[in-house]
């Protein structure tokens, strides 16, 4: 679960609609070193499809997606 990750940076994309969560994520991960973890908070349901596809394309690892009422949290490890 989320508590087990050492989070190095967070992106608050709550309230942002497609394609902003992915764009904010792509910009933010540039600042991390390989192996570091980014947490992305989003509310747009489209992010559930877009962020895994982005991780797949870029080779970064989507560690986990946590769904809570009204909130999606994605944990991504930089490749």
């Amino acid at each position: 679960m989320a508590a087990t990750y050492q989070i190095d940076k967070t992106v608050d994309a709550k309230g942002q609609t497609c394609p902003m969560p992915v764009v904010m994520l792509a910009k933010a991960i540039k600042d991390l070193k390989p192996g570091q973890v980014l947490a992305v908070y989003a509310t747009d349901p489209g992010a559930k499809k877009d962020i895994p596809a982005w991780a797949n394309k870029t080779g970064n690892t989507l560690l986990e997606t946590v769904e809570e009422p009204g909130l999606l949290t994605f944990y991504i490890k930089k490749a």
Binding site: C18, P19, V22, K49, D50
Partner: peptide, 10 residues
């Protein structure tokens, strides 16, 4: 295009 399709609206 920035996302995984050629336009934001599916």
């Amino acid at each position: 295009f920035p996302i995984n399709r050629p336009f934001p609206i599916q």
